[in-house]
Simulated assay, not measured.
Amino acid sequence: MTPLVWAFTLLAMLAFSANSLLARAAFSTTTIDPASFTAIRLAAGALTLFVILRCQGGKPTSLKAGGWSAFMLFVYAAAFSFAYRDISTGAGALVLFASAQLLMISYGLFKGERASILGLLCALGGLAAFLAPSASAPPVSAAALMAVAGFAWGAFSLLGRSQGAPIVSTTSSFIWALPLVAVLILTQLPHLNTDAFGVTYALLSGCVASGLGYAVWYWVRVRMTAIGAGAVQLSVPVISALMGLALLDESMSVQSAVAALVTLGGVAWVTLTIRRPER
């Protein structure tokens, strides 16, 4: 990858890490409910992307063009929010991105892509070692919801690669996901609740970590193979922990630091050895 693609990939991974931290902070320190968080996040992301798109002189695509992407985006965002009520930041990020990566690697292999298996094992082993010491076993229901979110996110990323201009397709997905959000809100009316900090976390998640973050990710995604896109996301749980160390006064052992370096090294190994199928 070029230096510019590397730089924007890092920005996208930082945004994804911020999403995990913001969601967990919202559900552990405020009274906002998952449906409200999801609605505010997606609405704020849609507005942010629409402004960006209009500034570029574009407009969203038709419902047909963005329907499946919108559905996958909604499933990811809703399952993500409900799962983070009962799962820690690190464990949630592990289940989420391992599921997404598994789907994308499977798709890449099916399409004939090849990469270093040792690199993949290195990245997965480092990630498991990094999360195991501090991650308690999450509730089965929360882990299952996060796995659904991960598979939906992987499908959303793959669909984005096959569509046209990244900003256009991403904006369309967010806009067409809003009717599904309305249905979710209607089904959760008795459980809705918000507060100032919860709304703030949701707005930051929607405008910055999701809206801007996804726009950058889609730009990067169309310049990567499916295996590369899946492998690079293995760095997100590690980055999330580093951000927690810096911003939330969390601690990190030497063993965790070494495991983080192994994970990032495995990601780089896979990315550098990816080979597209010959045509």
Rank of each mutant, 00 (worst) to 15 (best):
V51S: 09
F27E: 04
L261K: 00
G126D: 05
A147Q: 12
S88V: 02
N193P: 05
F82N: 04
L103M: 13
Q56S: 13
L22P: 08
F8W: 15
R54W: 05
Y84Q: 13
A70C: 06
V232E: 11
R276P: 10
R276A: 15
L180D: 04
D195G: 03
Q56I: 03
V5Y: 06
A43R: 09
V270I: 12
F16P: 13
V216P: 08
T225K: 15
G230R: 05
F130M: 07
L247F: 15
T171S: 15
M13L: 11
L10V: 15
A79Y: 01
A231V: 13
G119M: 08
L158I: 13
A257F: 15
G66L: 05
A44W: 11
K111L: 09
F156L: 08
L159G: 15
A98F: 15
A177H: 00
T29I: 03
S88P: 04
T200I: 10
A35I: 10
L272P: 13
G266E: 01
M252N: 12
N19S: 07
L21Q: 08
F156R: 01
S136C: 09
M104C: 03
I52H: 10
A70K: 00
A79F: 00
L53G: 01
M104D: 00
L11V: 09
A209L: 03
G206K: 01
P34G: 11
A77F: 06
P179H: 06
E250T: 06
V270W: 04
S141E: 11
G67Y: 02
